[in-house]
Design a protein around this nucleic acid. Sequence first.
DNA 1: CTGAAAGCGCTAACAG
DNA 2: CTGTTAGCGCTTTCAG
Lengths: 355, 355
Amino acid sequence: MVTRKEVAEKAGVSVSVVSRAMNNSGYVEAEKKKRILEVADKLGYYPHPVAEALQKRRTKQLLFFCKDLRNSFYIDMYQGMVEAARKRDYMMVFNGSMDFEKIRDAMIDGIIMPNEVVTQHYLDTVGRNYRLPVIAASYGNPARFSRAVPRVEIDMEKVMELAVRELRANGHKRLALAMPYPFRTMDVRRLAFCSLMEEVYGNRIKDYYIGIHREELPEDPRILAFQEDEDRESGMYLPEEDFFGKGELAAQLFAERKIDATAVVAFNDEFALGMCKRFHALGIQVPRDISLIGIDGSSARKYRDPCLTSVGLFPEKQGARCVDTLLDMLEGKKVKYVSGSPIKLIKGDSVRKLE
Amino acid sequence: MVTRKEVAEKAGVSVSVVSRAMNNSGYVEAEKKKRILEVADKLGYYPHPVAEALQKRRTKQLLFFCKDLRNSFYIDMYQGMVEAARKRDYMMVFNGSMDFEKIRDAMIDGIIMPNEVVTQHYLDTVGRNYRLPVIAASYGNPARFSRAVPRVEIDMEKVMELAVRELRANGHKRLALAMPYPFRTMDVRRLAFCSLMEEVYGNRIKDYYIGIHREELPEDPRILAFQEDEDRESGMYLPEEDFFGKGELAAQLFAERKIDATAVVAFNDEFALGMCKRFHALGIQVPRDISLIGIDGSSARKYRDPCLTSVGLFPEKQGARCVDTLLDMLEGKKVKYVSGSPIKLIKGDSVRKLE
DNA sequence: CTGAAAGCGCTAACAG
DNA sequence: CTGTTAGCGCTTTCAG
């Protein structure tokens, strides 16, 4: 392996001059600099990133701590991070194994958490005595962080408002909400939906809520909504959920319970697509018999027809903002404790205009 | 930050004893070891991964160099890698930005390449004078590596054979192949298909090949089959392709050209799903009017009904094997230059039994 | 402008 | 069994 020392010898200078030449820091005679760079190039020299990191106490790597790789929402988010990091000469590293302990073995300068639940878990365990800067992507879900963590937040209340407004604009009055969790779960979508529909439904709102309970799930090892009873009670859930499968189940429940809603807001696009499929199998046509609106704006919308109408959350933008905030922190800049990320309705063909 | 030195002082020993105690290497009095571990724990000490890496010349990180994140095939492959790496106490790092230059800034012990094309690109550029161990996932595509690189290979000829056999077993005689590339492209699927169908079609084989040419692609920036004319001529292509969109186009071409095949083998599942969608839009029913078989066994098969029949490639297994081979190399073991990865037909409902 | 020297936090001989 | 010592490859004062 060729080191700075070797370059220095061949160029007839000392290592420190080479260092300065390579980093454009401090003084070095123009003539010499040129020669050094030439020698380095000829030798195929390239600085050793680990040594550099040790000395500078900067690895130039950021971790996106996310296990839920099969969820394209997070993949999109990661793409946004990669791009933002690249612009500031950082590398975005992805860790697919959800193992908090191992986080301390990672050579990183900071961590981005995918949601409130994971953030809280982290802060309550390893994060207690590991004080690397942390940023959380968040969605307005109730969570109590034991330490101040800047969040880049998507305003889910507004998302729900957009969805409901779109349905109402198309003449829908009786709307249902389909979720992968029981009613009692403190999910911001459910809370927002309830507050928006309260004046219409009053206390009959539960009749228009389709939730998947653990007991109802088929015996599929992938479908594991809750790991511990404790988690279930606290309304927490862990990732790697089969939203599509749960969506199918939700459509089934919707049909069985003969809910008289004309439109459904689904937890997310994956969930909505699952509903679509099952509706189709049950002979219920979207949007003729039932209108459907998803949340995410994911590219998976394309798989089914009619194309799903959805509230786009632009996870790439959220991801990019997470990175920028984190890097600002590392540079010692003051950062906002909460910053927002844009949303927008993406029209498809799954909402019918009622006369 | 708490270091080994600090722990040593509090425990009244020297740093080397602490080192030995923590790594279970060399001798250290049982009593002392216990005390040291206690002190370390109380201080919340955790070894500095960068310093360790510098000294041991082992970062315990492996890179999966893959930009095509939206392709679930590679995501599955990555999952397999993560698991295999975890078992051997390694961390699998994912780099989503296709920038060969930046690879040298990554703190890694080895690299896994997603396919032959990327491997070759790498070897011809940065890989020239950066000799980190490399493993390539491969598919029997023609490629000339300028350096010996162990490959974990999926036998695409056998894959094609399985697909064709399944269709024939269901009574299909006239089979077509649908690909995202022109006929001249040296893709192993096309070559295998040609050799399998030669005796049936002779030189009419081109009539049963549906290929997407660059000129036929709609003006979608994402749809960029070839970056350079040079690449196109050499039959190379770069990732991030919209296989779904091209599949739609292929179905269109199939219908327009009134090909009299009763079944189609599609490039991959994504491509097949695109075909499904367009066929549906054109009023051509799968499998009633046309049978369809995909390649991959991807989870996206679930999105559409009928469920796609596909040849499963089990990318997780391929990924896991890549990692194991790479780690064996790092441990100085002798590794096979080419190793295989299993395949299997996954039955769905997209192939009709002909009378 | 340059080079010697002192580390970054950790490991691994090697005497004691 | 233990401590001293010499690095891993790089950066950064700080005298010259």
